[in-house]
């Protein structure tokens, strides 16, 4: 599904990613962990196509296609979804209206007509039930005045609506209490299938108790320095990141 080869990326001439290699197959969940400033969020932004990030070297392949030249919206149309660490507010635009626009723009890009209103309503009802979202929530302005938990739940709701092939969850657990964490994780688990894949970016192991990864990668100083099974996350939780730093001699 996703293949990253020797990816080097910089922002404002500062090198952040220094040779990332990663392969994610359909049906897999990958966790990317690492200390602050190791490049986790940058990796998410680069895959999603944020403009400020310059790819200096290497390539990102989605289902075999190099997506380097594609704009962020085109990548979204191809099924890449990023759950933001800090979702932005758009005053005056309701969650429903935002989703309607996102879905119809994606359909337009695929040469399809707008989704009929009744289908849209049905889909919204289905997905909001799945994530235990109150209907009133859907008519509120996007992320405006939302609590931390509401913002993250809304991200996962959008993921449910857009049904991406590859979902990247960037620090989805930050700012969540344990109940919200459980709801969000349950949502992600319900959306998982053998055809899609999830990359979970997190600083702590906590979320991985709920969304169980097939692989754990440790990112340090712009490189993946260690990969392993889910137990690696527990080891990190116990020992912290310092031993990894020592191990790689950084």
């Amino acid at each position: 599904m996703l293949k990253i080869n020797n990816l080097h990326a910089s922002v404002e001439d500062k090198a952040i990613l220094k040779g990332i290699n990663l392969e994610v197959k359909p049906g897999e969940v990958h966790a990317i962990m690492g200390p602050n400033g190791s490049g986790k969020s940058t990796l998410a932004s680069v895959i999603a196509g944020k403009e400020e990030y310059e790819v200096e070297e290497g390539e990102i392949l989605l289902e075999g296609e190099n997506i380097d030249e594609l704009a962020a919206e085109e990548r979204a149309h191809k099924g890449i979804f990023l759950s933001f660490q800090y979702p932005v507010e758009i005053p005056g635009v309701s969650v429903t209206n935002f989703m309607k626009t996102a879905i119809n723009e994606t359909r337009k890009a695929k040469g399809l007509d707008d989704m009929p209103a009744n289908e849209m309503l049905k889909l919204i009802r289905e997905k909001s039930d799945l994530l235990e979202i109150d209907k009133k929530f859907l008519s509120r302005s996007l992320n405006e005045g939302f609590s931390g938990g509401e913002k993250k739940r809304n991200e996962i709701f959008q993921m449910a609506m857009l049904e991406p092939k590859l979902a990247i969850l960037d620090e989805t657990d930050s700012g969540l209490d344990i109940d919200a964490l459980r709801i969000v994780a349950n949502g992600v688990n319900k959306l998982k299938s053998k055809d899609n894949a999830v990359i979970v970016i997190t600083h702590y192991q906590r979320l991985l108790d709920y969304i169980v990864p097939d692989f754990v990668h440790v990112l340090h100083n712009g490189k993946i320095v260690k990969s392993g099974p889910k137990e690696l996350a527990h080891e990190l939780e116990e020992k912290g990141y310092d031993w990894i730093k020592e191990e790689v001699g950084a």
């Binding site: 196509g49 962020a72 919206e73 933001f84 005053p91 890009a109 302005s141 857009l162």
Partner: peptide
């Protein structure tokens, strides 16, 4: 903000449409 635009882009909404959406919300 560029962040607002990128957020919309990431959801499949191109920049022009994103501006229209934000402006409509504002108005």
């Amino acid at each position: 903000g560029e962040d607002q635009i990128f957020y919309c882009n990431q959801r499949g909404i191109d920049t022009e449409k994103a501006i229209a959406l934000i402006v409509n919300g504002f108005s």
